[in-house]
Amino acid sequence: MIEVYIDGASKGNPGLSGAGIFIKSGEGQERYSIPLGVHDNHAAEYLALIHALRICQEKGYEDIISVRTDSRHVADAVEKEFVKKEPYRSLLAEALELASAFPLFFIKWIPESQNKTADQLSREAIRKNA
């Protein structure tokens, strides 16, 4: 099983944003800090998920992908395959399409206290925008 911890952050809403991705697999741990440009916080969270799933595809992971996020909004939207607000519909659709490529995909909400590495990486990514 591949454990993927994600976090999206924005400095301002909208503002400079970043994605933090922390992957734990049988091969070890990987950390990614990806600048996203200007987005609101929810969009940054979706983009963190999208980037994480792309990375898993590029790495050729074919195991169970278990994503952990401290965004209830994203976790609920993915589980229900629905989001009300228009700006997030295309991001959710892209995330669901990427997730469907894996034999088993799960997403789980976790408290911020359990997502500190991804949070730190997302904040580093904000600084990389400048």
Rank of each mutant, 00 (worst) to 15 (best):
L47M: 12
L91F: 09
V38P: 06
R31V: 01
S17G: 04
K108G: 14
L104E: 15
F106A: 15
D76R: 08
K128Y: 11
H73Y: 09
F105H: 08
E79K: 09
K24S: 08
L16S: 09
T117P: 00
I23K: 02
R72T: 00
A101P: 04
R89C: 10
V38H: 11
A19K: 00
R54D: 01
G28L: 09
N115Y: 04
V38N: 06
E86N: 04
H42L: 09
L98C: 12
Y61G: 01
I34R: 01
V4D: 03
G60R: 08
V83S: 02
R72P: 00
A75G: 14
L47S: 08
E30K: 08
Y5E: 03
G26P: 07
E94I: 01
F22N: 03
A43W: 12
I110F: 12
A118R: 04
S10P: 12
A75H: 12
A44Y: 05
K128V: 08
C56R: 03
F105G: 06
Q120G: 11
C56N: 10
G15K: 06
L47T: 04
H51E: 09
R89Q: 15
A19C: 02
E58N: 10
K59Y: 03
F22Q: 04
K80R: 13
S113E: 14
A101D: 09
P87Q: 04
G26C: 15
A43L: 13
I64S: 13
M1S: 07
E112N: 08
K128D: 12
D7F: 02
D7H: 05
M1A: 07
E124M: 03
Y88A: 13
L49E: 00
V74Y: 13
I126E: 00
N13L: 09
F105P: 02
G15I: 15
V67A: 06
E94H: 00
S17C: 06
D7A: 07
L92M: 03
L98Y: 15
I126Q: 04
Q29S: 15
